[in-house]
Design a protein around this nucleic acid. Structure first.
Lengths: 173, 173
DNA sequence: CTTATTGCAAACGTTTTGCACGTTT
DNA sequence: AAACGTGCAAAACGTTTGCAATAAG
């Protein structure tokens, strides 16, 4: 298994930006390159990680006091970027989606159910198995998503400490 | 790989109902066995498959003209049944969840992106790999979800037929 | 007779949309 | 100048909740 913890995307921002501009130009009808779209892209680039539209909106508002960017534009741009394959999303039931720059290699997720932290992993064997299963069912595979839910090491530690504290208290009584 | 296409749950309805009644009685405080709860359970039993609360609501309304059952009760009962481990859910991003009777063995899902059909599979090797990965990350695994998205054989066929029809039309012009 | 459960409607949080105005091309 | 993009507020969507009436134990 290979683990990919790199916090930096694989391409430079210049390359990414060019890629994005090219995409806009090639669209039919051609789309426009706006300040808002640039800021959303650059924010995703500089803040490597998984964000809800709301979280991204807060970061952008805080870091760009001069330019107004509405939440609707965040949603619209994230959809655009996702359809273009520039970002990918991971969904959390009714509680929404989190987005990340998708220029990294494909990977799956470990999600902490206590603190919401997301770790990434990649396993070639599982990838192959999935393709094989799709084939067996005559499914034309388009995508797949593997999520492992659990408690991360840090939260396990916190849990243990809380238990110890409780035990001490009970011992006193 | 073992494939489980059985459209019938593993236990009889009588057994399931007893299990449910026992569960209600054992709760603290004890919960009540109502007509609505029985109908929701029996509808899930007789209509094997995956349903959104809305879909279940429509089925129940159609098949039980005499008893009024509100959508809120569907939601409340599905939560109850899920917490009790009697049904399981599979979530679809912002578009909600689908529920199924969960007395069957654990399995993962193949989901058709055209028609929404859900097929089930189980692969021991993938299961093991997941447990191993969680261990490597010191994650205390609670659950996992593997979804393969793609186009089912039927929809592939429909797609091909549509293409053929289009080709003929173009040939005419 | 007590307590949980119900349907209803209102509230909720997230996402989408209509529209007049601004910006990019 | 033409057309796309924007912010805003309202609407839409799936889900949850408060409440008075009802049914189960």
């Amino acid at each position: 298994m290979s683990t990919d913890h790199s916090k930096k995307p694989l391409v430079s921002y210049e390359t990414l930006l060019l890629q994005f501009k090219e995409l806009l130009k090639q669209s039919n009808p051609p789309l426009k390159f706006t300040k808002q779209r640039e800021i959303i892209l650059s924010t995703l680039y500089t803040h490597s990680g998984h964000y809800t539209p709301e979280e991204l909106y807060e970061i952008i508002k805080r870091e760009n006091r001069d330019l107004k960017t509405g939440i609707a534009t965040i949603y619209r741009t994230l959809s655009l970027l996702e359809n273009a394959g520039i970002v990918t999303s991971i969904s959390f039931g009714t509680q929404g989606k989190k987005y990340e720059l998708g220029v990294k290699a494909h990977h799956d997720h470990l999600i902490c159910t206590k603190c919401g932290k997301i770790l990434e992993f990649f396993d070639e064997e599982i990838e192959e198995k999935q393709a094989q299963i799709a084939k067996e069912f005559n499914f034309k595979m388009e995508d797949h998503s593997l999520k492992i839910f659990g408690i991360c090491p840090e939260c396990q530690k916190i849990e243990k400490e809380r238990q110890n504290a409780n035990n001490k208290k009970e011992a006193k009584n």
